[in-house]
Write a protein that binds this DNA or RNA. Structure first.
Length: 258
DNA sequence: CCCTATGTTCCCAA
DNA sequence: CTTGGGAACATAGG
C-alpha cells in the first residue's frame, strides 16, 4: 500500500523525469475521479509530498494533488497503449504519466492558488519527538491508531506502523498517552530508520505497489513482522501474531513488544 | 458459486 | 472533543 516511502519514491522519480515539461494533453478514464481541467499548456515547476499525498505544482498557480489510497500507482510510459485499470493520463512531450488504480479509491484534484493544508507531525523532521509528545497528550486510543491517524502523524500506514512498533518493542495496544518523552524519542528514531531505509528501497511490494518505472520495491525483504504471522520473531524468537486493531490486521511479537 | 480479507479515508453516531 | 464502525471498490483465495 502506498504510504510515505512509496509517495516519496514517486516524488523523487517524477522530479528526475518531468520537471520543466509542458503538459500536452490530459485524458480522464474514470468519472469517479471528477473533472480535471486547465492543465494543458501548464509547465511542471515542482513536485512536493505531504504525508502520503503527492502534489504537482504547475505554473499560473495551478496545483494537482494526488492521493493513491490503497492500490493507486503512477506509471511513466513512452510507448503506446494503456495498462488495465488506467484512470487518468497526463501526456508530456517525452512520455506520459498514467494513474493506475484497480480499486478506484485514489483521488485526484486540481486547485488554483494554495496547495494542501499540512496536518499531522512529519515523522522525519528534526523535532518530531516534541511534536509527538504534544500531539499524544490525553489520547486514550492504542498507539498504533495514533500512528496511523493522518491528523496526528503524516504518512504512516499499516505496514510501517507495525514495523516501527516492533522496532521500538512497544505493543500496538499501549495507550498513546502513557508513552513518555523518551518513548517518543525512540519512536521518532525508529520512524526515521524504517522510513528512510524503505525510501532507499523504493517502497514495499506486497502485491500492487510498483514505482514510477514499473519496478517492484525492495523493502519487503526487510520486514520484521508484517505478513509474518506464525513465523519466529527475528529479534527474540517469539511467535509473530496477527490480531485486528480498529479493523486492520496488526502483526506484532507478543513476547518482546510490551 | 459464495464468502471473506485486504487497508485508507470519509461520514456518521455515540 | 474523541472513538469506533461501516461504506466506498475490485480482486484474490478458500
Amino acid at each position: 500500500m502506498p504510504e510515505l516511502p512509496e509517495a516519496e519514491t514517486l516524488c523523487r522519480q517524477l522530479r528526475q523525469t518531468v520537471i520543466g515539461a509542458q503538459v500536452v494533453q490530459t485524458e480522464m478514464h474514470d468519472w469517479k475521479l471528477g473533472e480535471i481541467r486547465g492543465l494543458e499548456g501548464r509547465r511542471i515547476l515542482s513536485i512536493n509530498r505531504w504525508g502520503k499525498r503527492v502534489e504537482m505544482v504547475l505554473d499560473d498557480g495551478v496545483t494537482m494533488s494526488l492521493h493513491l489510497r490503497m492500490t493507486g500507482r503512477l506509471l511513466w510510459q513512452n510507448g503506446t497503449g494503456l495498462p488495465p485499470h488506467s484512470r487518468f493520463v497526463m501526456s508530456l512531450p517525452q512520455g506520459k504519466i498514467i494513474l493506475i488504480d484497480s480499486r478506484r479509491f485514489a483521488t485526484l484534484s486540481v486547485q488554483v492558488g494554495a496547495g494542501c493544508v499540512p496536518s499531522g507531525i512529519d515523522p522525519l523532521v528534526e523535532d518530531a519527538p516534541l511534536g509527538l509528545t504534544a500531539m499524544s497528550r490525553g489520547r486514550l486510543s492504542p498507539v498504533k491508531s495514533f500512528l496511523m491517524d493522518q491528523r496526528c502523524v503524516a504518512g504512516i500506514g499499516n505496514i510501517y506502523a507495525c514495523e516501527v512498533l516492533h522496532a521500538t518493542q512497544i505493543s500496538p495496544w499501549r495507550r498513546t498517552c502513557d508513552l513518555s518523552f523518551s518513548d517518543w524519542e525512540m519512536m521518532a528514531g525508529a520512524m526515521r530508520s524504517v522510513l528512510s531505509k524503505a525510501i532507499v528501497c523504493r517502497g514495499t511490494t506486497i502485491s500492487d505497489w510498483r514505482d514510477l518505472f514499473g519496478e517492484e520495491g525492495e523493502y519487503q525483504k526487510y520486514l520484521m513482522v508484517y505478513g509474518r504471522e506464525g513465523e519466529p520473531c527475528l529479534r527474540c524468537g517469539g511467535r509473530i501474531t496477527r490480531r485486528k486493531l480498529s479493523g486492520v490486521g496488526t502483526y506484532f511479537c507478543p513476547s518482546c513488544q510490551v
